[in-house]
Design a protein around this nucleic acid. Sequence first.
DNA 1: GTTTGTTTAATTTGAA
DNA 2: TTCAAATTAAACAAAC
Length: 451
Amino acid sequence: MPVLMSPEIANKFKEKWMMLHPEDQDNVSGSIHFDDSLTSLHWLQNFSILSANPERTPAFHPQHLFYHKNQLGGTDSPSSPPAGDTAATGMPQTPGNPTTSCSSLMNAYVHQQTGHYITAQTNPSEEIDYKTNRHVKPPYSYATLICMAMQASNKTKITLSAIYSWITENFCYYRYAEPSWQNSIRHNLSLNKCFMKVPRQKDEPGKGGFWQIDPQYADMFVNGVFKRRRMPATNFNTQRQSKLLSSPGSSYGSQCTQTGMGIGDFRGPVLGNKRKQVFPKRGSKLSRISKSPLLTTEIKTSDVLRGDFDLASVFDDVLSGNDSTFEDLDINTALSSLGCEMEVSSQNQHGNGYSNEDEQACAYLEANGMMGCNMEDFHQQHHHQHVQVHPQYYEGMTLFPEQVQQQHQQQHPWEIKEEAHAIPLSMDHGYGLCEGFFSEMQLWERAEAYL
DNA sequence: GTTTGTTTAATTTGAA
DNA sequence: TTCAAATTAAACAAAC
């Protein structure tokens, strides 16, 4: 049985569970009881879902509803879009913008196709299959597509032609579209700071170089979704910039000031409507590694702020009976993983956690950049924690810095100047981090949907 | 000649 | 409404 604390929640949850799993009735009437002392969710009720900024909601995974893993030549391919990717331009947005709230996503994410909307909850089978539908432009930005291709390739670098191939293989639209999109891809690779070119070795045959995601900006690609557009300048960058600017040797501050460090942070600021190159171009692309904010700034961040653990998915799993057991819903264990007993990766050994939401958001973003670990490894090593993790989350999910290090060593030749160090976190710190984390993920709002 | 890569410019779109 | 991200188009050069 799940261990839920708040009696009301527990009872509601129990009712719902019993509707779905009447076979467990015996257990309930038996000796098993709701442990009210160890895994209380009372604290959840203190979180303000109103204050949570959906734009910065790190933990919600729309793939949960829409991102299916198909197999095509060993690569991942999407069907319907991660709604968090609002980078779509070819795809008409719904009046109720799917990015505006988690609950709207949860309850009635709608996708427009040929003039009518699809409600995922009511009829998920109507998801658009972009792999076969040549008429609907995938609602992914080019940057997202590039990242998808890179990620699907399971290699650290990928050629332009491979990017083309992956896109055409997995998105029918581009198979028949005018080839101008390839120009846009190239343009994106060149202009987008997130991508860096890896020159081909002299003895390496072939045309052109390789491309990879600049680890400095890897945080922009989360769970297959390229974060989009500017952060609110006032609540994201202000403190961060002051810190970064005061950080010796870091040029990050001057850069992020330009655009708020949103994804698609193209090189050079925009003056009026014209872009003007200010930063060192081409030649400096490869040298950016050394000035990565991920590697030079003081806060290496909290894993708990990563947000890739989607507690709601656990609810989903349990309620859908998707190979889950009640043990899988051991919220307490999950919370332990997230903070209450967690270790925090931080460069700043003297850090006291995060003083406000901005810091948390920044830390979260930076954490993402460091978190490229293979979740299968993670799951194997931490299965004892009873945290059921959706397979589709594996790719981007990381909770433990050692996996990051391992991953970097194994798969990413990216230069890591400084390694994150795990430091013990006190309960107070952990609680505070938990609070920040969950206020961001609007967990309560999601959990409420089940009650 | 084709592909790849860079750059500029204009336009569209979305968030604040 | 404004600003900036994202897209689109195009020109050009270098490499294959």
